[in-house]
Simulated assay, not measured.
Amino acid sequence: MTKKQMIALFITMIITSALVSAATVASGIWYLNKSTQASSSATGALLDLSSLPFMSQEAPKSETPSFHPLEKVVLTIKGKKQSHFVMLELAIETRNAEGIKDIDNYMPVVKNSLLKLFSDKTFDELQKHGSIESLQTELKQTLLLAFEETDIVHDIDDVLLTKYVVQ
């Protein structure tokens, strides 16, 4: 065999090996997904505990959003001469209500993150025109960051400000 033939044979073997490996992985994933759909709930629960994300099934998302109200939060902000109070009521918009059913257990995390957000805010800053839109964006980013380590973050579509009072 010549050197060119050896190189061509080697390249052909590598390509064939890559194709066979890819086909094996793809068919394994397909088989596992098919068998999980047909298997009992015990097997599904076992796969849900797996650390492989492609093996677990996601909860079906609804087309219409649902809203989950959070507890009222009252915070203190700085003013020029005195302290002021901010009362917030928030609602979480989701298309997977089952995914955020335990969000009320995380209210200390929510309150802590809101306290940190409002610690740098002033009364004048919150009274400016257009501050509600920017505040709502900041609230969403703050809560998504607070839930970053949990599975709840994947089910939060939006954070709505349902009541906002500054005194």
Rank of each mutant, 00 (worst) to 15 (best):
E89S: 15
L90K: 11
L90W: 07
A91W: 02
I92H: 07
T94A: 03
T94I: 05
T94M: 07
R95D: 06
R95A: 01
R95H: 14
N96E: 13
N96F: 00
A97M: 08
A97S: 14
E98D: 14
E98S: 12
E98R: 12
I100E: 07
I100R: 08
D102E: 14
D102F: 03
I103W: 08
I103H: 08
I103S: 07
I103R: 09
I103D: 07
D104T: 10
D104Y: 09
N105L: 15
Y106E: 12
Y106S: 12
M107C: 00
P108E: 03
P108I: 07
P108M: 05
V109L: 15
V109Y: 06
V110C: 06
V110S: 04
K111D: 03
N112Y: 12
N112F: 11
N112I: 00
S113I: 01
L114N: 02
L115N: 13
K116D: 11
K116Q: 13
K116L: 11
L117A: 03
L117C: 03
F118R: 07
F118V: 09
F118Y: 13
S119W: 02
S119Y: 10
S119M: 11
T122D: 10
F123M: 01
F123T: 01
F123Y: 13
F123G: 01
F123W: 03
E125C: 02
E125R: 07
L126E: 02
L126H: 02
L126C: 05
Q127I: 04
K128M: 11
H129V: 10
H129Y: 04
G130M: 03
G130H: 03
G130W: 03
S131A: 11
S131C: 03
S131Y: 10
I132K: 14
I132Q: 14
Q136M: 02
Q136A: 12
T137V: 04
K140R: 14
Q141E: 13
Q141Y: 06
Q141R: 12
Q141W: 01
Q141M: 09
T142C: 10
T142R: 09
L143F: 03
L143Q: 07
L143D: 06
L143C: 08
L143K: 04
L144S: 03
L144M: 13
L145T: 15
L145C: 00
L145W: 00
L145G: 14
L145N: 15
A146F: 06
A146T: 07
A146M: 07
F147H: 11
F147Q: 09
F147P: 10
F147M: 13
F147R: 09
E148I: 10
E148V: 09
E148T: 08
